[in-house]
Design a protein around this nucleic acid. Structure first.
Lengths: 346, 346
DNA sequence: CTGTTAGCGCCTTCAG
DNA sequence: CTGAAGGCGCTAACAG
């Protein structure tokens, strides 16, 4: 039972008229008589006619499909960004092909190639953490298709970008920890080839050095991933070094959660012995015990905005590509919960 | 700068040979001389030639794209199923278009229609909770494209199906609670138009009635969704009725987490006053305090298996559609953690 | 108002 | 070994 759909020609034959007439009738063109239109629509329904987008796309040179490349979709973070993207692009009549690089440069390259062959109309990318060469993005764009980068920056690659002010988020978090009385604040940092992680670390460092009253030593352990087991590892490292920290600023919530598990195992109290702050505000974070203080990011909006920028490029029909790219930096927000201490009143 | 890619014809003109020769040379056909092949490949590289899959698809009547329809992707559960699907389908050279119905029947219908127009080669569906009429699946399949249903059953719609034995999972969970000494076990049930939720409820009921020694009254509250706030709502309902339960079997982990928050708010101890068991084993569940006893499902495998069945159908080139469909029922597994009591030894 | 022609990019006959 | 012709399903331009 090979796929056999009825075509415009089938309708035309059935009615003994020209295919072009059928085509026009179906689009309700004003230059077609009521009678033929009715007849065409009737037969179309009878034959269960469905237009073949492939043929249309080939003709129009546009597929109305957008490629979305993320490191992974199992995290709430990227899944929610995708929701934002989808909601906006749906309205504009675009479909999405979602690809996961699994943080691998090779896979990312391969997938972008496939997307390119599939003639997607544009690309939204959050690059893999292992990606440092961006020629595959350049190649993609060279074919005349717009690209928007979101969440993770690619230095050296000029494009529309929508990022979160990670530096500011870290600054807020660590400044708060300082204000709440913590003085030995450790940072469980993420992979430093990601600007996101660099910026959070820098925010942490700058908060420490700008603190008046004492010289605070940074205390950093770097982990390679974003899941809770890395949080456990990182925390164990920190505790092995003796001289416990009195606060942890973790690269994200999952890592913070892992750290909390280790802290609890040592019978230390959160936040009394050690405060913990995460990043992301995942839906579960408020349900932990104690509930997790964290830095919220406008995730959904990040998706919407990225999609909006892409649409804008898409609509600059032909036109010379804009020399200046847009750069959006969204503001994160510290959410205070019970894993951090209150600021003393005195 | 409208998209302008070089075509086979461009190469042909450049070399003053026929397009068909170029086509053959590019596919390394044995009936082409070494010299022309080399020349063609050289020019192809020069012009940065990329085959246009659209044209190929139109000709072959296959796009190598599979549609995947899930209620939502922000949950770990569906995201992981998708990973399974993708890993298998990638190998076979298929791309995925992922769609979210947001549990809405209308959106589901609309999206399946779009997928159909886009000429996807097949469809993997986990239907929306509001879906009870399956004619849109039938229509899709009527065009000769294979369909596989996963995770959520559609009674009345015959197809290859890969499901989890929810009944058994519930039975395991509630039997354990009974064995651990609980006698007043409540169930926070999910939307009853989903067979998944029906089966879990039935497993709960049957565990109660098959208990020897006392007649146990079921205690059920039904919620409309799968997020933690529904868990909070459900738990509040239960506690309002006075005569507190000594265990909660929640429809899933997120709901269980919400319930735990309310229990804690009432200063009741988990598991001493009330045991809690969830369903899904989300990655965070082991990090809750107390860690959550739950029913694990072979999520990734569910994706892989579904994809495998679809591939099998895809490979039955043409052939009459199989009269008998496959039905796979995967076994879940109870994971014991600290939110439930140990079975007394005596 | 309708039909004819041509072509999107590619491949597969059929003829040399 | 290579070229010419035809067609996948659809639409736009040009004729009536």
């Amino acid at each position: 039972m090979k796929r056999r759909q009825s075509t415009i020609t089938d309708i035309a034959k059935n009615l003994k008229i020209a295919p072009s007439t059928v085509s026009r009738a179906l689009k309700d063109s004003p230059s077609i008589s009521k009678d033929t239109k009715e007849a065409v629509n009737r037969v179309a329904k009878e034959l269960n006619y469905k237009p073949n987008m492939l043929a249309v796309s080939l003709l129009n040179k546009e597929t109305k499909i957008i490629g979305v490349m993320v490191p992974e979709i199992t995290s709430y973070f990227f899944a929610t960004i995708i929701n934002g993207i989808q909601d906006l692009l749906d309205e504009a009549g675009y479909k999405l092909i979602i690809c996961q690089s699994n943080e691998s440069y090779e896979e990312e390259q391969k997938l972008i190639d496939t997307l390119s062959l599939s003639q997607v109309d544009g690309l939204l990318v959050s690059p893999a953490s292992k990606t440092s060469d961006f020629s595959h993005f350049e190649n993609f764009r060279a074919a005349g298709m717009p690209v928007v980068i979101f969440d993770r920056d690619c230095p050296d690659f000029e494009a529309d970008k929508v990022l979160v002010d990670d530096y500011d988020g870290a600054l807020q978090a660590v400044s708060y920890l300082l204000a709440s009385g913590c003085r030995r604040i450790a940072h469980i940092a993420g992979p430093q080839n990601l600007t996101t992680c660099q910026h959070r670390k820098q925010g942490y460092l700058d908060a420490l050095t700008s603190f008046e009253g004492a010289t605070l030593e940074p205390l950093i352990v770097e982990v390679e991933g974003f899941t809770s087991d890395f949080g456990e590892q990182g925390m164990e490292h920190l505790l092995e070094q003796g001289d416990y920290p009195d606060a942890i600023f973790a690269i994200n919530d999952a890592v913070a959660i892992g750290a909390m598990a280790i802290i609890r195992k040592k019978d230390l109290k959160i936040p009394d012995d050690i405060s913990v702050v995460g990043f992301d505000d995942e839906p579960y974070s408020q349900y932990f015990h104690p509930s997790l203080t964290t830095v919220w990011q406008p995730v959904y909006d990040l998706g919407v905005l990225s999609a909006r920028l892409l649409l804008k490029q898409l609509r600059q029909t032909s036109e010379v590509s804009p020399i200046s790219y847009r750069f959006e930096l969204l503001k994160p927000e510290l959410i205070l919960r019970d894993s951090s201490k209150k600021i003393p009143m005195d």
